[in-house]
Nucleic acid binder design. Sequence first.
DNA 1: TCTTGATGTCAACAGCGTCAACATTCGTGA
DNA 2: TCACGAATGTTGACGCTGTTGACATCAAGA
Lengths: 251, 251
Amino acid sequence: MLTVSTYRRYTDRMCPVASRRTKRKPADRYHHGDLRRALLEEALRTIQTRGVEHLTLRTVGSRLGVSRTALYRHFSDKQALLAAVGLEGFRTLRLALSAARDRTEDSRAGFDAMGAAYVRFAVTHSSHYRVMFGRFVESSARDAGFVAEATAAFEVLVGSVVEQQRAGFVRLDDPQLLARFIWSIVHGIAMLAIDGQLGCVDEQGEALNRYAIERIRTAIAVSQGDVPHDIDDAASQVGDLPGGGPGSRNR
Amino acid sequence: MLTVSTYRRYTDRMCPVASRRTKRKPADRYHHGDLRRALLEEALRTIQTRGVEHLTLRTVGSRLGVSRTALYRHFSDKQALLAAVGLEGFRTLRLALSAARDRTEDSRAGFDAMGAAYVRFAVTHSSHYRVMFGRFVESSARDAGFVAEATAAFEVLVGSVVEQQRAGFVRLDDPQLLARFIWSIVHGIAMLAIDGQLGCVDEQGEALNRYAIERIRTAIAVSQGDVPHDIDDAASQVGDLPGGGPGSRNR
DNA sequence: TCTTGATGTCAACAGCGTCAACATTCGTGA
DNA sequence: TCACGAATGTTGACGCTGTTGACATCAAGA
């Protein structure tokens, strides 16, 4: 299992946004250079250090040595900025999941590692995670890119479920439904941990996470009399289901 | 299984806050009479109809025919008002869970019904649910009452787990851990449904919920070679674990 | 009747997101 | 090289928000 320090180094590599220092606009310059990028990075930094609810456009601007309304040249409004942050979050999550899965040759262990990596991502990037899921980004601001990135992250999970089914490790239920079930569990643990409902995040959260992975294995194991579901058919449909994937706009 | 209409009637009975009309202060009167209660009800109504983020103290005040600052005589600030709303939510949730469990003589069916009732509560009172869990109530505003009410709701689940263990339906793991595991699942489903990540809430959410309850049964069933845990000991400790329960302040 | 505490009002404040008008700079074709 | 339009950043203003301190009103007990 990964240690915390390994993961830190790993996330720094996957998510340079949080580690690199965003540059201020030189006082003698009128244009910033790459303000859009800088705004995104500064917003993420503020969110990670102070929380979404304390993010103000004025502060972000002044931190970059730029006026409070400069942002409107790059984002339609605050919601759009948050949506962009959330989009980046889903991308980082997807990379983290894929990396955790591919780190070992053993597909079974890789699958379990994904579960651990998911919760660890959420806890490590808790504020970021809340932007992705906490309805801070209103439905109207969730554009095609946002939905696509969220769906892509979910697809990694569905793909792995199908893989596990092919290998005979997982019962042959609808992969979509199975994936949603597993997703609900890790998402639930992550949210409870983030919201401080599990007491000490590190200890209780870790213990619960380990236990959950063990229980999930039992829950999704192949049972006798298993009615096979058409895996290939379902796997190919991932993403283009009419409103089934994550980031969906209807509620 | 309960129909939606049955549940509506049920919640109206359990949660009069949402159904009764809050009375305005008569224009010729200086004092309102029971402003605290009215503020709570009006805040909840606004939250349920317009969402937490659209709750403003000014609107609440003017709706009750009262000045915008009258609120400060009953709540220290907006956070305290939200905390009070959240507290009421946990109480309602606890009653809903107990009622769902006790509606049938069959303890196994009752246990499953709790899971369904949990998600249904969250979806039906989605905005209320988000106040309870979404960190809209900051840690500092979570007073003893809030934590106690949240813990009490969790205790219902733990108690039922122990009951199921005694009846031989559930494996003899630590009831606390088992309860947290189950809680994570229903909480995860609820949050994903509420946040619109499951597409159509009613259809996909219902289907996922049914599937989850079935899978949970497999996950927590007694297995051969089950190492018994001291149930009675763990059950008596519920609630006074140092920071283990829900609503805990540390993060 | 007087006093005291509880409750509600009023005016003001700073901070917020957003907009319209304006300033500066960049890129590009003549 | 130069002019011109597009892109980018600034300024001032607006209405909204939560919160505060000084003041007004009322109920209840001494």
